[in-house]
């Protein structure tokens, strides 16, 4: 999937996901595809941030209205989007080591609570179940499609393949580490019942009677990562909608996008259980089949057949 996206990006240097469908498919169809993507990014951003808010609301601040979280994240996101990709990237550069170190630290601190036997036996469920349950994480990694928007802004687009692959592998490693750790702590039977098993995992860390309440580290990670994500997707949306409308400067779009996002955040789910079901069973297939694999493949295939775009990658 990453190769697909990067391959597309490199065929059209200087163009984003919102621009090259027009070149490939022609004006009307191209606009339609770009609009679909725009919609998907809106949804993606809302889903992401909604789950982030749910975490805070469910675990720590059940009485706080969602609007408070939404308003603050969007003020920050708009600010980030105003200053553009470089500022967002530099901020992330600042926080990322902290986040990664904290995740690894939490993992190692909870090692004493783990029982390897909880992980056994493996591959008990059979292939069909296995494939079904990989859809959700796969869809999550599939969000590398976002990368299609950054490629034109890379200093060295030639390294795009490497960067995308590294990003995916790194995320996958951290993801695997967390999942395995949590199952080793709680056994599959319990993990399945928790909404935020990682939080429960962090809560049980207690070393030498003084190192406790590590879940606050998790909250910091979650907040930083959540806000970074919203900021980034906000920028993508602002840029995308500006390009779709053919505006020269993307900044006038910041406010409208923020308003639409606010509404989406608030309306997208009725409650946590509905959200849980949607994210587990509907969202993965929806985004995986259409936006993360289907459309990029279609675009690349048509581009290759029609011979548009430069050969590279």
């Amino acid at each position: 999937m990453a190769r697909l996206v990067v391959g597309l990006g490199l065929r059209f240097p200087g163009k984003t996901l919102f621009q090259y469908p027009e070149i490939i498919l022609g004006k009307a169809a191209g606009k339609a595809v770009a609009l679909l993507y725009l919609w998907w990014f809106f949804q993606n951003c809302a889903e992401n941030y909604r789950s982030f808010i749910s975490f805070l609301a469910v675990s720590f601040m059940p009485e706080t209205p969602l609007m408070v979280f939404v308003a603050f994240a969007l003020i920050m996101a708009s600010y980030g989007a105003y200053y553009g990709l470089e500022v967002i990237a530099r901020t992330n550069q600042l926080f990322l080591p902290f986040v990664i170190v904290s995740v690894v630290l939490l993992f190692f601190l909870s090692v004493p609570e783990m029982t390897v036997n909880n992980l056994l036996p493996v591959f008990e469920a059979g292939m069909i179940h296995l494939v079904k349950s990989t859809a959700a994480p796969l869809a999550w990694f599939g969000e590398v499609v976002t990368f299609a928007v950054f490629i034109p802004y890379l200093n060295r687009p030639g390294q795009a393949h490497r960067v995308a692959l590294f990003g995916i592998l790194g995320t996958a490693a951290i993801y695997e580490m967390t999942v395995i750790g949590i199952i080793a702590i709680f056994s599959p039977a319990l993990t399945a019942g928790y909404l935020f098993p990682v939080l429960n995992g962090a809560r049980i860390i207690h070393l030498a009677n003084f190192l406790e309440r590590m879940e606050l580290v998790l909250v910091v990670i979650w907040t930083v990562a959540g806000v970074m994500r919203v900021t980034l997707l906000h920028w993508v949306l602002v840029l995308g909608s500006a390009q779709w409308l053919g505006l020269k400067d993307y900044r006038p779009m910041i406010l409208p996008v923020a308003v639409i996002l606010t509404a989406l955040f608030m309306l997208i789910h009725k409650g946590i259980l509905e959200e849980y079901y949607f994210l587990a069973w509907v969202w993965p297939l929806y985004s995986l089949i259409i936006f993360e694999a289907g459309l990029p493949f279609l675009l690349l295939a048509v581009a290759a057949i029609r011979g548009v775009g430069g050969k590279s990658g």
């Binding site: 702590i185 709680f186 056994s187 039977a189 319990l190 019942g193 429960n200 049980i204």
Partner: peptide, 13 residues
Amino acid sequence: VEYKDFIRDLACP
């Protein structure tokens, strides 16, 4: 027995 061990034993066949 910690609570998490208790419910784990309860949940696991």
